[in-house]
Measured scan of single mutants.
Amino acid sequence: GSLMYASIFGNVSAIIQRLYSGTARYHTQMLRVREFIRFHQIPNPLRQRLEEYFQHAWSYTNGIDMNAVLKGFPECLQADICLHLNRSLLQHCKPFRGATKGCLRALAMKFKTTHAPPGDTLVHAGDLLTALYFISRGSIEILRGDVVVAILGKNDIFGEPLNLYARPGKSNGDVRALTYCDLHKIHRDDLLEVLDMYPEFSDHFWSSLEITFNLRDTNMIPGSPGSTELEGGFSRQRKRKLSFRRRTDKDTEQPGEVSALGPGRAGAGPSSRGRPGGPWGESPSSGPSSPESSEDEGPGRSSSPLRLVPFSSPRPPGEPPGGEPLMEDCEKSSDTCNPLSGAFSGVSNIFSFWGDSRGRQYQELPRCPAPTPSLLNIPLSSPGRRPRGDVESRLDALQRQLNRLETRLSADMATVLQLLQRQMTLVPPAYSAVTTPGPGPTSTSPLLPVSPLPTLTLDSLSQVSQFMACEELPPGAPELPQEGPTRRLSLPGQLGALTSQPLHRHGSDPGS
């Protein structure tokens, strides 16, 4: 009898404990919600809404976190579960008819179910419309201010047509639940991603989709105040780019002037030289400038040598048109050559190039014969006009050509200096018209024969001689050997007369 009593008592207590286990969990969670309300000092109306929603959600799901349970299964099984949970929507909604099984599984994985109690606001006026909503159960109302403009029910759709707008718009009203509602919502990016994977279904979906109420604000059109608020930074940046392009296009129409201050000032006329910023005076940081632009901040801005204009002085008759350009485009679109090309026009420029290279940067340069637009006047290309890779490749080509020119210049200078040193070592320090008596009659020769300089066969020296023939050397430049009979510069000019005159010897006659 005691054994029977113990078994009955144990079973009854276990049954009672299981009955009250759900209630215990409910009270535990309710205590957490109330502690949250007390800690954050939530006001009474919002506090009442929180408690009511918790009670309804507990009775609806029995305190089970559906998302946590669903995430515990593998992905393939999750797709089947989501397809079952959203079967009513996918079967009865017209846009989803005719979709393949794979497309429906992908869509079912992207849908999220939302449960809303009465009085809950789903979308506020001015919120971004980031999702498309399908009503599965219940009814909602749409308000503009305090005026109800629409009441939607089961199988209705609200949001915005995503295929017509590249960016999400703003809501033009509040969406509030009238009863307990079940909503299926899919985010904008998720829907577009699935439709991109199934393009054959995309056309059918957009053609058959009928949005019951379009929440997009109709005033959000390009150029409206609301649109400016939504895309303020983007609009200002776009206007700045367009104004920069218009100014650079105007600059290219004036090829007669070359400016070292950047493309923003290349198009300024002579009357605007004294102004601080020219056409860019209202925004000094709008356009890029070269490193020399920092010198323009000092006094005497109108007389600054940074602004270059072609000189009108005539060229000498024998002067060549100019050196070879550094870039391939210089032959086609440049009416002034790079300062480095002028360094190779003569030997005198070679000796004085490194010492006063900055001073020569603004000297007169030889002109190319074609009066085409200036290379320095070409505006900086924006990322939309020329690819970045093209600019980098041009810079690399320019750097390689500069290296080759520097190597060639160093070799030419070394060769010229070597020839000058050899000339100085071969010439005796001094010569006299009267020579010392020699031991015999073989001493009648006034000077030792001097062998002429070897013929220069280097390509670089031939180019130097060509430049010497075309360029007029300055007075202080050293002379180079030329073709024809060679003669030492330090010898007297009348050596031929010395050989014809008898030598005057000093000596005593033994017979006297």
Rank of each mutant, 00 (worst) to 15 (best):
T372I: 09
G322I: 12
G256A: 10
T252K: 11
A131M: 12
M197T: 11
E210S: 07
G232F: 10
D459K: 15
E200D: 10
E229I: 13
L164P: 10
G145M: 08
R144S: 12
S224K: 09
P369V: 09
P373F: 09
F351L: 10
Q401F: 13
G438A: 11
S259L: 10
P383T: 14
Y362H: 09
T372R: 09
D156W: 01
A177V: 08
A430H: 13
L209Y: 03
R388A: 11
P474M: 13
L473N: 03
G281R: 05
R167A: 12
L376K: 03
F201T: 05
S460Q: 10
T228H: 08
L261A: 12
L178C: 08
D146A: 04
G476Q: 13
G355S: 08
R240I: 09
I378E: 09
A268C: 09
S289P: 15
L456D: 11
S334Q: 09
R422H: 10
A166R: 10
L365M: 13
D412S: 05
P325A: 11
E141H: 04
T248C: 10
G322D: 07
Q399W: 06
Q463V: 06
R216Y: 02
L178Q: 09
D296V: 14
I135P: 03
E231N: 13
R167P: 10
G262F: 08
L417M: 03
F158D: 01
D412H: 08
A131N: 10
S432M: 09
K170A: 04
A268Y: 10
P373L: 09
F353M: 05
T455K: 13
T336V: 09
D190Y: 01
T442R: 15
G269K: 07
G281I: 08
N163A: 07
L230I: 14
V434Q: 13
L456A: 09
D329N: 08
L376T: 10
L162K: 03
I140S: 01
A166P: 11
E364M: 14
A266C: 12
I142G: 02
M197A: 06
S207R: 09
T336F: 11
I221F: 12
N155S: 09
R404K: 10
L456S: 09
S202Q: 15
E257Q: 09
C337R: 08
P270Y: 07
P339T: 10
R240S: 10
P199K: 04
T425P: 10
P428R: 09
L215Y: 01
L230C: 10
E141S: 13
L448W: 15
E364A: 11
L380I: 13
M424A: 09
Y198I: 01
G359W: 15
S259K: 08
N349A: 08
G493Q: 14
Q418C: 06
N338Y: 10
L473Q: 07
F134C: 01
F311L: 14
A260Q: 09
L152V: 02
V194D: 01
L308D: 14
V391K: 05
L409A: 03
G264Q: 12
L178T: 08
N155G: 08
L395G: 06
P299Y: 01
M424G: 09
D251M: 08
P454R: 11
L340S: 11
R236Y: 09
F353Y: 07
S259W: 10
L261W: 13
H506G: 13
P439M: 09
S303N: 03
G256Y: 09
T442Q: 12
P428H: 15
L261S: 11
G440L: 11
P369L: 09
S285P: 14
R245M: 14
T457G: 11
S432N: 14
E160K: 02
L261T: 10
G173K: 04
E392Q: 03
F234S: 12
P475K: 09
P325M: 12
L456N: 09
E193K: 07
D127I: 01
P475V: 09
E331H: 10
Y198N: 04
V464M: 15
S227H: 13
D329A: 11
E331Q: 15
V347G: 09
K154P: 10
